[in-house]
Design a protein around this nucleic acid. Structure first.
Length: 477
DNA sequence: CGCATTTGACCTGCGC
DNA sequence: GCGCAGGTCAAATGCG
């Protein structure tokens, strides 16, 4: 018996996968040709032919088994990721629902005293929901009932965005409910916006997605036209992207694209080396690896905003994800995320153009006043003062305040004491992240002591941070 | 010929 | 109510 098919480089994949081999035998001049044998026989035969074949075959079989297991694990991981995202979305909207109902209750109470003032906080929520003309809040006497309707809408949106079309199909029996859900789903997917400021030598910011340009407009007072792109990777993908063009060049004159697809030049008006790209909506299709990382971070940033700061109009934190952003900005490997409640929609601005120290966490907050008073709290990520080798590392205020190099606790305590809204906002944000009420100041100290003793603990973790492997659903790219 | 971009018209929201 | 500005549409155009 001789092994008919065994190439010099080894067994073919097909043969190994089928765990069969093909043999040719000659028995008394009668060629039995190719006989396919089971793996057991094969193993015995190979044992007769020598140890190298047996080991190689065993290794290949193990490799195939590992591959199969890997595939199974991959699919399991994808499922877990999807479920995780669905749960995250559910939590977010439950929080929003809670905040909205609280706000409505407050409004109803305030309306008895001053209706105009009571309308203001609702405006943000309403704008966020984009209820617009069909406002459920127009009637004073119906506000309680309207609150219930809004909550239903939010719940429907929760289901729509968190669990996708499967859940949608479960409630098709109620046509009106489905219509409302579709609307609210669209609302959520379209209204929240993530803007990225990135310093780049290239004319295009490759994000791994395919975009189709559908419009261009020149903004008043800005010589740079703004271009509008629609995601063309999926059918009817709702994601849109807009950029400010430095100049209107034909594609042939533009720099070579980094990613897939073609884009126009897009620059910040004040700084022509800065690209400003705004994303809006959620992809309804799987993303390529290149786009997934950015999508996960932008969605994480937005989740931070939606989960903890929906009632505040402006707040900033830093997203420490150097691997992700290094491809987008050659200056800074951190992103300063600015959360703002604009007139039209909540916006998260990831500023990669700021020349920040990589080891610094910047926390910025502004009041809800029109003046947008801002406080900067850049914190050392590694928890120690660069000029102080204290064995007990404490984050230090290093910049932007007159009280330079004061202990974080002292300065934050002062800042919180001076600004009740900051205190409330911090409390809300931290509570939403940890799921439990917290004493900010006390926990700050305890966390710092924890951080000094635990490996890999990031002082940022008390701030909204990007999960290491955020699923790519709920993307914003 | 098909696809992507361009560009003027149209729509919509907001401020006065 | 009106005008403005931003956003979108869709026919025209260009390119491979």
């Amino acid at each position: 018996m001789e092994v008919k098919q065994c190439s010099g480089s080894g067994w073919s994949n097909a043969e190994v996968q089928d765990e069969r081999l093909t043999f040719s035998t000659k028995n008394g001049g009668v060629d039995t040709n190719f006989v396919q044998m089971g793996s057991t026989l094969l193993s015995l035969s190979l044992n007769n032919s020598g140890p190298p074949f047996t080991q190689m075959n065993m290794l290949r079989m193990k490799l195939e088994e590992a591959k199969k297991e890997n595939e199974i694990l991959k699919s399991m991981l994808n499922q877990v990721n999807e479920h995780c995202t669905a749960l995250q979305n559910r939590i977010l909207f439950e929080i929003q629902q809670h905040q909205l109902s609280s706000s409505l209750r407050n409004n109803n109470h305030d309306l008895q005293g001053n209706r105009k003032d009571a309308k203001k906080p609702m405006l943000h929520t309403r704008q966020f929901l984009n209820i617009g003309k069909s406002s459920l809040l127009d009637s004073n006497t119906e506000e309680c009932a309207s609150a219930e309707n809004i909550e239903k809408k939010i719940l429907g949106r929760n289901v729509a965005c968190g669990e996708g079309e499967n859940i949608n199909s479960q409630i098709t029996s109620h046509e009106e409910a489905k219509h409302t859900e579709d609307q609210t789903s669209e609302i959520t997917c379209r209204r929240a916006k993530v803007s990225i400021r990135a310093r780049s030598d290239f004319s295009l910011m490759g994000d791994g997605c395919q975009w189709r340009k559908y419009g261009q407009k020149t903004a008043k007072g800005n010589p740079c036209p703004r271009a509008y792109y629609r995601c063309s990777m999926g059918t009817a993908c709702p994601v849109r992207k807009q950029v400010c063009l430095m100049k209107t060049l034909p594609y042939s004159q533009a720099d070579a694209p980094i990613g897939i697809g073609k884009h126009h030049v897009q620059r910040c008006f004040k700084d022509e080396t800065v690209l400003i790209t705004s994303y809006e909506g959620n992809h309804n299709h799987p993303l390529p690896e290149a786009a997934r990382a950015l999508a996960s971070s932008t969605s994480a940033a937005l989740n931070m905003f939606l989960s903890g700061s929906i009632t505040s109009s402006h707040a900033t934190t830093t997203l420490p994800n150097p691997h992700l952003f290094s491809s987008l900005s050659n200056i800074s490997s951190t992103a300063v995320a600015t959360f703002s409640q604009s007139a039209t929609c909540p916006t998260v601005t990831l500023d990669l153009a700021q020349p920040l120290n990589n080891n610094c966490l910047q926390f910025q907050r502004a009041t809800t006043s029109q003046n947008h008073r801002q406080s900067f709290f850049p914190l050392s990520l590694h928890g120690h003062h660069p000029q102080n080798n204290s064995k007990l590392p404490l984050p230090i205020i290093m910049l932007s305040t007159p009280e330079k190099n004061l202990d974080l606790v002292d300065v934050v305590t002062q800042a919180i004491a001076k600004d009740p809204s900051l205190k409330a906002s911090l409390f809300s944000a931290i509570s939403s992240l940890t799921g439990e009420p917290q004493n900010i100041i006390d926990d700050n100290r305890s966390q710092q002591s924890k951080s000094s003793s635990s490996d890999g603990f990031d002082p940022c973790s008390k701030m909204p941070a990007i999960p290491p492997h955020h699923p790519y659903t709920n993307q914003l790219l």
